[in-house]
């Protein structure tokens, strides 16, 4: 063995090829089958898509680095299920490009935060976390409520996502910008189309409580309020497993 190596280490190209081969095997064996083994991602016929507003909120979540402190992945451990709810399924992040499972919990897991608190609380908490939770270490995000949401090219975002596999329809892409505004202005003319395109369960509300402008706060709160609610598969699966 050492004799063989003694020869190999005299050939730069040989060494390079050997390194590439040795280093490629692990990734191939572990990643490729995730695309070929069907049960990797569960079935969930009720799976919803993110609306343009929720997607914008998700992008703000990414931009602000919320994932640095919050996970969105409840593990298959008793304490996590008892604290946060049913463990996360693969299908729940099926349309998440990229996923936001996180690796650190400076704050609590957010996988099932949707609908847990009121919009009002979310807004107050994001503006000043310590006003509602005195012990908090979370930064204040007051500027979100002051920043109007940029909605110009939402169609292009949905289009890009369609290329990577999210089934947005032509109609959704065409009306993306309008839908983003519509979801946060329930009394406006644009609201009706949102429910029609994304389902009746879509939350169409004044998320930040201010009807005058659709802000980044609207988008982020809309996103937080949908977390864990794109499908009921997780609740169903835990219930089935427990039986």
């Amino acid at each position: 063995m050492f004799g063989l190596h003694y020869k190999l280490e005299r050939k730069a190209v040989g060494l390079v090829l050997a390194v590439i081969v040795a280093a490629s095997i692990g990734g191939l064996v572990e990643i490729a089958p995730l695309f070929t083994i069907d049960e990797t991602v569960e079935e969930a016929p009720d799976m919803r898509l993110y609306t343009p507003l929720e997607l914008a909120g998700r992008n703000i979540y990414i931009r602000e680095g919320c994932y640095a402190c919050h996970s969105q992945m409840i593990r298959t451990l008793q304490d996590e299920v008892e604290r946060y709810g049913p463990f996360s399924l693969a299908v729940e992040s099926r349309y998440d490009h990229p996923m936001l499972w996180g690796s650190k919990r400076t704050g609590p897991d957010l996988a099932r935060i949707g609908d847990k608190y009121s919009d009002q609380w979310q807004v107050a908490h994001l503006i000043d976390p310590r006003a509602v939770v005195p012990e908090s270490k979370m930064p204040a995000y007051a500027w979100l409520a002051r920043t109007p949401l940029e909605t110009e090219n939402f169609g292009a975002h949905l289009d890009a996502l369609r290329i990577v596999g999210v089934p947005y329809t032509d109609e959704m892409i065409a009306s993306a910008s309008s839908d983003a505004l519509g979801q946060a202005t329930p009394d406006g003319p644009r609201a009706a189309g949102v429910a029609q395109r994304y389902g009746d369960a879509t939350q169409i509300r004044l998320f930040d409580g201010d009807a005058a402008t659709v802000t980044e706060m609207d988008a982020l709160v809309a996103y937080l309020q949908i977390l864990g609610r794109l499908t009921d598969a997780a609740t169903a699966s835990t219930a089935a497993n427990v039986e």
Partner: peptide, 27 residues
Amino acid sequence: WPTGSSYTKGLLGIDQRQTVAEKLAAA
């Protein structure tokens, strides 16, 4: 180990989802 369209399930037949479900039930 992956086998293409499935994987080796192991002699103990353990699956983390089943395990936690049992733990929850036992608790």
